[in-house]
């Protein structure tokens, strides 16, 4: 972690002490408890010293063994010329997360994509529908336990 990243991290921690560094990432990454997510995100965007105004990407990772979904947000700040990865973990059994679409409008569609493929329900999302698949599609295909006879899964031995 470089010096600048350390200062950014301390700035974030000053607003919410529960934020920790995420070791499981190759780049500068923080982990936020899921109930604090919207608060931290708002701070990341609105704080003048941070100003992460651009939400580059949002995705989910299915950790089936651990019974968790990991949500990953990639943010970018023009002011600091820095990308930051914000991750949060939600239980796999109750896949509910808070929507950040009020903060970044593009999140509305990115969250729709994640909902479509992982079945994560975003609270306060304005229009949570499937994005790529038909509305009557059964199951969420990118989950590790998704099974579909149409899929012709290649089994390696």
């Amino acid at each position: 972690m470089s010096e600048r990243e350390a200062t950014i991290f301390s700035l974030i921690q000053s607003c919410c002490s529960e934020v920790i560094l995420n070791e499981g990432s190759g780049s500068f990454s923080i982990q936020v408890p899921s109930e604090k997510l919207v608060f931290v995100m708002e701070h990341l965007k609105k704080s003048e010293s941070l100003a992460f105004v651009m939400l580059l990407d949002h995705l989910a990772v299915d950790w089936k063994e651990m019974g968790e979904f990991e949500l990953v947000y990639q943010l970018y700040s023009f002011k600091l010329d820095q990308r930051i990865e914000v991750t949060t973990k939600i239980p796999r059994a109750i896949p509910n997360a808070h929507s950040v679409s009020r903060i970044w409008p593009i999140a509305e569609w990115q969250e729709r994509e994640v909902y479509d493929l992982f079945g994560i329900y975003y609270i306060n999302h304005p229009d949570l529908r499937r994005l790529f698949l038909e509305d009557d599609w059964k199951g969420f295909p990118l989950r590790k336990d998704y099974e579909d006879p149409f899929m012709l899964e290649l089994v390696k031995e």
């Binding site: 099974e147 579909d148 006879p149 149409f150 899929m151 012709l152 899964e153 290649l154 089994v155 031995e157």
Partner: peptide, 11 residues
């Protein structure tokens, strides 16, 4: 033999 498919699509 190394290519095994799980599930056969009905169509």
């Amino acid at each position: 033999s190394e290519v095994k498919t799980r599930g056969v699509s009905p169509n």
